[in-house]
Each structure stands twice: as C-alpha cells, then as structure tokens.
Amino acid sequence: MTTIYRKSKGLQDVPMHYCPGCSHGIVHKLIAEVMEEMDLIQQAIAICPVGCSVFAGSYFACDAIEAAHGRAPAVATAVKRTHPNQPVFTYQGDGDLASIGAAEIVHAAMRGEHFTTIFINNAIYGMTGGQMAPTTLLGQRATTAPGGRTKEQAGCPMRVAELLSTLEGLVYAERVCVVDIPHLNQAKRAIRKAFEKQMAGEGFTFVEVLAACPTNWGMDPIGANRWLMEHMAEYYPLGVVKEV
C-alpha cells in the first residue's frame, strides 16, 4: 500500500477548534508541511498571537511561546537574536498585528529582524465576535460597525504588506490566499520562500494570507471564499509585494 497523503509531522495529532470554512487550519497545515520538508520542526520556535489562533502552540509540533496581544514581533525579536541559527516565526491575525501590535510589527520590520511573520488577514476580529479590524473593508459590516465601515468614521483599511514594504529591513512580502488548490499551492511556496530567506539570514520576511471567516462574516464557507476573491482580493491584491 502506498501512502499518498498524511498529516504533516509539523502538527500535533490533536483536533483543532477552528470553525468550518476558517482558513487558520489550512495555513497551519502549510506551515507544518514547510517545516517538515525543510527539516525545521526540531529547531523552530513559533510565537503565537492573541485571537482565534491563540492555541496555535497546541497544534504546531515545534516549540511555541504565547505572546500578549500584538507583542509577538517583540517576543520573536528576542527569541531570534538569542537563538540566531534557529527558525523563528510569528503567526498573527489582523487585530493582533495591524491594530494593537502595529508598533511592534513596524519596528521589527524596520530593524530587519531575521524572523518570518505569517499574517492572517480576515478583515475582522474573530475570537471576540466580529468587531471591526483595521483591515475591515469599507462597507463591510462588523459588530462595532453594524451599518458597515465608513471612511468618515474609521478611515480606510490598512494594506499592511505594502506599508511594511517601505522599510529597508523587509526583504520579502507576498500576499496569498487559500481559497482553492492553486492558490493554496502558491501560499505554500510563499511560506517556504520566506523560511528559506530567513534561514539564509537575508532579513525580515512577511507572508500575508487573505483568510475567510465565515462565522463572523455571516456566510457559508463557499460563499465566504467567493466574497474573499471578489472583495478582499480586489482591495488587497494578491502576489509579491516586495522581493529584494
């Protein structure tokens, strides 16, 4: 009998708590597969966020550290600088990274810290129940913007990959999504490239993943993926944002 597919050794053999149609599980899998293929599981240190993926350290098979809300890049800075030969990555959502942790991610990128950030942009606060994020689209409904986000009240959404790409310390930024197999494969290639550049000591690497949140968007999983491609991918263009 030939094994044609198995769960990555980069993940622990435990059930995940994510909602049906949520992208987190898929992105976890891609990171796990990249770690396994690059033989990094035994060395890697994951820095986990606050938000839906707060339990990521219970899912990844590598060592992990739970950071305070938004502070993962600060934690990762110290971890990487004290363990410069080991792979270090932060896994952060948009409330965590783009709002409360905006200073930490900007300055980690400015310093060109040699770790990788996987940024999950689902345009909403998931775990707290659907509040507006810095990445919520204009017109998109949230529990703190029940009539839809307006430019007058909350400004326009933040394109984080582009913002960070103005900093010299960032050597690679790509925006991807995981709505279907071709996009998923591209996302995995981007994550792998980010880890390769990290291990080569090139600088700060950043992969933004447009992610679906059917629960808080009030959609079914297929509808959420369709909405993601029609609306999010329009405002947040997919592809390489910067590569040095």
Binding site: I65, A67, R71, A74, V75, T77, A78, H83, E104
Partner: peptide, 17 residues
C-alpha cells in the same frame, strides 16, 4: 526597543527560551 511594552515583551521572549 520601540517602547517599554516591546522591551518587556522582549524580556518575556528571551526568558521563554
């Protein structure tokens, strides 16, 4: 660090490993 918040969270990170 960029702030006192970041500084103590760097201590947290170094201590954690």
């Amino acid at each position: 660090a960029e702030s006192e918040l970041a500084a103590i969270n760097m201590v947290y990170g170094a201590a954690a490993c």
